Amino acid sequence: MPEIFDLDALTMNEEEATQVSQAVFERTITGGELSETHDIVTGIEHKTQIPFIGNIGLIGKKVTSCDRGVNPAQIPLTEKFWDPVLIGDRFKHCAVDVPSLFKLFKKAQRVNPDFYDRIGSEEMGVIVSKLEQALTAMLNRLVWFGDTAAENVTDGGVITDGVDVDYFNIIDGLWKQIMTEVPAGSANHVNIAANEGASYALQALPANSALGIFRAMHTQIDARFFQAIEEGAQPEFLVTRGLWQNYQDELEDESIGFTLAEVKDGVTQLSYRGIPIKVRHDWDNNIRAYQDNETTWNLPHRALLTVKENIPVGTLSDADFNTLESWYEKKDKANYIDIDLKLDTKHLLPYMTVAAY
């Protein structure tokens, strides 16, 4: 089990940093808390049922006698099932493996046990902070890009060669489900032609194209989705950065930004026809880092119009999303951190979604 600190690219000398505050922490694209975009359903176990209660068909005929017939219409019930998967990982930190780091972190006052037991130390604080970021990024990666049939490019899949597919084949994420239930050519699908470009350069969005995509998506809203919006449902556009940037550019070019922008808490928020637009930088990061065949990216421009209740995330306890278990193992003279949680996600009603890809 490797030490969690990799020092291969770090040069130690007499002028090395002596405080954590002197270190620069690289930014991590995590995607943010799941609850910002999804309903969180807790207490789910294997094969927990999600029932759907359908609608009665036509009712009401002209009455011609007291002996009226019985309408044979029924209320259909269908179902999906939660199928959460147990996900875990372990990290190890041993003080002996990284003695040079202790100029950066506070030194132990005695060898046994303080030198070995680093629980509560500065370096463990750094590890925990970085693992919390990685955990949030993992949750969003699996929720959106999980695929139980994931394969590398050389094996016929879309996962970048050299990337371990075991980090993706845990659950079927939302894009896998949405592309199955809202396939290309369906009524609530909008095609983004730039995705079909034969190179990175040819996949660039043409100028002033995002507005047309958003307009087409709005036009394709199912009548039942529209009615839900009129009754108070709160839809949102989730989009890759290229679409958002293209849209901003067009608003600036046409000097119409002031008619479509809203201000919330003093910050200008972009929306389209009153529907807020949220940029998913983590989608871009995952596509470019993990869905790259060295010529093109896999569908680099994507947008989704739905409500958070339609793309819930299920777990046994949402506290697991932010919980790390850490302990010092005396017999190993090492510190461990474990991650354990159950996770699944579901795309519930296709008609409550418009997908562009």
Rank of each mutant, 00 (worst) to 15 (best):
P312K: 02
V313S: 09
G314V: 05
T315W: 00
T315L: 00
S317A: 06
S317P: 04
D318Y: 04
A319F: 02
D320F: 04
D320P: 01
D320N: 15
F321S: 11
N322S: 14
T323G: 01
T323W: 01
T323K: 13
L324G: 03
L324E: 05
E325M: 12
E325H: 13
E325W: 11
E325L: 13
S326L: 09
S326P: 08
Y328V: 13
K330E: 12
K330R: 12
D332M: 06
D332T: 14
K333P: 00
K333Q: 06
K333R: 15
K333M: 12
A334S: 14
N335H: 07
N335C: 14
Y336V: 00
I337M: 15
I337F: 15
I337C: 14
D338K: 11
D338V: 11
I339T: 09
I339Y: 05
I339C: 01
L341Q: 08
L341C: 03
K342Y: 14
K342T: 15
L343K: 01
D344K: 02
D344A: 13
D344W: 02
K346A: 12
K346M: 06
L348V: 09
L348N: 05
L348A: 13
L349G: 02
P350N: 07
P350S: 11
P350F: 09
P350I: 06
P350T: 10
Y351W: 09
Y351A: 08
Y351D: 06
Y351G: 01
M352R: 08
M352L: 11
M352I: 03
T353S: 06
V354H: 04
A355R: 08
A355I: 03
